[in-house]
Simulated scan of single mutants.
Amino acid sequence: PEHPDRLWRTPEPKRSYDVVIVGGGGHGLATAHYLARNHGITNVAVLEKGWLAGGNMARNTTIIRSNYLLDESAGIYEHALKLWEGLADELDYPILFSQRGVLNLAHSLQDVRDSVRRVEANRLNG
């Protein structure tokens, strides 16, 4: 996608920041975003040795899902998935989020058991 100029500015570092985040991948950028949006903290530096949103965020290996095994975790993972679904509109920027399926292959009897457990846990969690 076309990147707005505001994404490529290169300001001089400030003498101090309220928050310094090491790592400009998905977690670091999300932390900066939600600090600003939810808490008004905008004096934030994000340090990244590569490119922003690199790592697994920029590759086909990223899997964003709400299918975890613990009942206690299901709600927070489902909430996180919903945040992803609306993030492009909220940022007014195409993050290229696209929901797809996932295929897990079982190569052993234990893999089959683990897969059945995951399927049943997901079924029970709706």
Rank of each mutant, 00 (worst) to 15 (best):
K82L: 07
G50L: 04
I76L: 03
T42G: 13
G26N: 02
D92S: 15
R9A: 09
E12T: 11
A32I: 07
D71H: 08
G23L: 12
A36D: 14
D18M: 04
E78D: 09
G54Q: 00
L103M: 14
D111A: 03
V112A: 15
E90V: 10
N38C: 13
S16Q: 12
H39P: 03
Y77R: 01
V20I: 07
G24V: 02
A45D: 00
D18E: 12
G54H: 00
W51Q: 12
L96P: 06
V102A: 15
G40D: 05
H27M: 15
V46M: 02
Y93V: 13
I63Q: 05
N56W: 07
V22C: 12
R65P: 00
Q99H: 10
L83A: 09
E48G: 01
Y77M: 01
L47N: 09
L52H: 03
N104P: 08
H3T: 07
F97Q: 14
D71V: 09
A53S: 03
G55T: 01
S108I: 02
G54D: 01
Y34V: 10
G86V: 10
I41R: 10
R6M: 10
L81H: 04
Q110I: 10
L105E: 15
G23A: 12
H107W: 03
V46G: 02
Y93E: 12
H33G: 05
G55N: 01
A36V: 09
A106P: 00
P11Q: 04
E12W: 07
I21M: 03
L35V: 04
G101H: 04
G54C: 01
P94H: 15
V22Y: 13
T42V: 15
P11A: 09
I76M: 03
G86Y: 04
V22G: 07
V112R: 11
V102E: 14
Q99T: 15
L29E: 05
Y77F: 02
L29F: 06
S66F: 02
N38V: 11
T42P: 06
V22Q: 14
L29R: 05
E78R: 06
R9S: 07
G23N: 07
E72F: 06
G26H: 00
A80M: 08
H33W: 11
E12K: 07
L81R: 05
R6A: 09
Y34T: 11
A80K: 10
G86E: 11
T31N: 09
V46W: 00
A80F: 06
H33Q: 11
I21K: 02
G23E: 05
G24L: 01
P4L: 08
N60L: 11
A32T: 11
R65M: 04
L83R: 14
Y68D: 00
E85W: 08
W84A: 09
Y68L: 00
A53D: 01
T42N: 15
P94K: 13
H33T: 08
G25E: 01
I95N: 05
G86D: 10
L87Y: 02
S73A: 04
I95T: 11
W8Q: 06
